[in-house]
Design a protein around this nucleic acid. Structure first.
Lengths: 214, 214
DNA sequence: CCGTGTGAAGCTGTTCACAGCT
DNA sequence: AGCTGTGAACAGCTTCACACGG
């Protein structure tokens, strides 16, 4: 497999597209397609062939001129670029419907990720397991557990009123990446990456585009 | 309240920020703050004052030079721009944990939106209600219900394998806006707005930034 | 000759600097 | 004097055109 470099200033848009290319390549792999051109990907999926070549070129040259890309090699390369080869442990705080949905969601337990525990303060929930078998622990054990298991990714799926507290606790005991679902602005700490998934904002954006076609 | 225009080519980034400004203004309103300058918003929330003025200027001039913005008026104006004044009915397909989380989520039942039903094919779930009281109906009634209630917004929270089918059914009976949570590329129809919330892509993006600090 | 990779052009969104109201 | 609103500069991302290698 070709080696790659990771330059500075890769845009978030590019990273998102890489993740999408990965999904497409997995489909092709299942269909036992070995080689595909950027044009082929464009026709099959909603991908811009020029954009794809540009995106890949940031990291190196992975295609064969006149031929196209080796599906399997490109797959492996993108997996390495996104750092999905190592399995990273994930914990979710908040075992409401959202937390449980995420714990059992395939994407949170596929290549690169393993959700190993949910945390909640509700005594009714503590000690139980989700449908797919993730255990629910007391939020009192949060710090201890994260340190012992060396967890690096945390998901905030609690009520907005506790989100900042949970953020502080997570980042104080070694969590380096956070996916936040609480619809509030968190006061962030240096050296921690956080991505927000703000469903209220998403819905309001949809409302705007319903009235004013894109 | 000042009137506004909606020009073509408003970027999604601007719409997302408007939604966020709205959230901040609501906080100020609760604190009974009547007037605030763009600089004041910048200091209080993570907002760029220049960006805010630019964003608002696309739609008109809502501030008072030398003074700032009237919190209440600006609030009302953004509500109108985002078209949140009319209450829009929302239905969710898929009454798994995710669907139920969304149905009970405050943001899906606040200004501008009312989630009026969940749909599922599971006989165990049909006829029950969520914690906060949204009823779960048979997915067989989907089209009939949407037409009768004139629902315009649908949420896809089903397994990826049924997502395209549900998309087609929703768009064939009058749904005009869709929030899709299934991690697949949907074949879209002209005249329907769809926003994707792709949690797998989100998590993979986080993985990249964990390795390569932004 | 075909498809990748890339420098340059074009475009879109953000930041700057300041003119114009209050 | 203070703060908004805006044209112009700037930066970043996307698209184009084509040189290059298989």
């Amino acid at each position: 497999m070709a080696s790659f470099k990771i330059p500075k200033n890769i845009s978030e848009a590019t990273v998102i597209r890489l993740s999408y290319y990965l999904r497409c390549l997995n489909i092709l792999k299942k269909e036992k397609i070995k080689i595909i051109s950027s044009k082929g990907l464009e026709e099959r999926f909603q991908i811009s062939s020029v954009q794809l070549r540009k995106d890949l070129a940031y990291f190196g040259g992975f295609g064969r001129r006149g031929k196209g890309y080796n599906v399997n090699n490109l797959l492996k390369t993108i997996i390495k670029i996104l750092d999905l080869k190592r399995e990273k442990k994930v914990i979710i705080v908040g075992a409401g419907h959202l937390g449980q949905a995420l714990a059992d969601f395939q994407g949170f337990n596929s290549l690169g990720f393993k959700t190993i525990a949910l945390f909640d303060k509700d005594l009714e929930k503590i000690g139980k397991i989700t449908k797919k078998g993730t255990k629910i622990l007391s939020v009192d054990l949060l710090e201890e557990f994260i340190k012992k298991e060396k967890v690096k990714i945390g998901v905030i799926a609690v009520h907005p009123s506790s989100a900042q507290e949970i953020y502080d606790r997570l980042t104080n005991c070694g969590i380096k990446g956070i996916l936040n679902f609480a619809p509030i602005q968190i006061k962030e700490k240096e050296g921690v990456v956080m991505l927000n998934v703000d469903l209220k904002i998403r819905l309001e954006t949809l409302s705007f585009y319903l009235k004013n076609r894109r």
